[in-house]
Design a binder for these strands. Sequence first.
DNA 1: AAGGGTGGCAACCGCCGGTGA
DNA 2: TTCACCGGCGGTTGCCACCCT
Length: 288
Amino acid sequence: MGRAPCCDKANVKKGPWSPEEDAKLKEFMEKYGTAGNWIALPQKAGLKRCGKSCRLRWLNYLRPNIKHGEFSDEEDRIICTLFASIGSRWSIIAAQLPGRTDNDIKNYWNTKLKKKLMGLIPSKYSFPNTFQTQPHSLSNLYRDFNSIYLQTAKSLEPAPLPSLYCNNSDTFSLTTSQYPYFPQNQELYNGMESSNMLMFGGNEASCSSSDSKDHVKQEEIPCGFQGLYGGFDQGNQKFMLHEAFVDQKPVNLGCDMELVKQLISNDNSSGLVFNHDEGKREMVYYYS
DNA sequence: AAGGGTGGCAACCGCCGGTGA
DNA sequence: TTCACCGGCGGTTGCCACCCT
């Protein structure tokens, strides 16, 4: 048996709020607050509405200092960063944006911001139609994206290619030159500064373990970062992997595309970033 | 001018966790 | 410890305005 409904559905009004209802609710809230609880409020305020509906109307529209209208670039950046770090925890994201409601941010993300970000990716790398914002789907998306890129990478002309990153904790990142942002430990990425790197959702814990992987040399990298660094060789024929940023100098491990593919197909992979730098095709692989 | 499609957004639904009796 | 209640949350729906053909 399910939970009892919070109100008598048959006797409550639904749909858009009228100015009169807004005025009643506003006046009541300013005088008495919720007067105990939201469920009882409509009756006390003389409203034929569900308590939850009143709460929503107040929180999302009537309460003071609500900000409506265009989101600033700074707000965009905060939303993107937090979404990539914590996912669709809209209330937490809203807490970082004074005057914005979780509903507003959710709508903004779903209708505009997501598309704005996706629009940065050239059409030849279009995401599959199945693209969803759920972390699990993003993991799949990341694999698809990487797979497509690997198949075509060698024939690509230099282009402002953004990078997609996803790790086991189900966060993802997009790398472009248009939204430069370096997370918590910017010094981690000093070596990448010239390469249009943007990382969402990265954290020290997710890329600092020292477990060994077969035939991949690993060392403790300063500042908690471990990874592989790759790029095409001189003849542009073979994709080479290197140890990343040991003493700021890549160390050639002599790995080729087959290893890259192997790493990608390995579910234990932590993440993979394709990066584009001044016409060179590069890749950074993160592991945990 | 009309009607079908699309986007934006307010509101609803149902689940979950906290709390107090 | 259990259970009911309530608030909060995220996903989804549905309406309306605008655009395109």
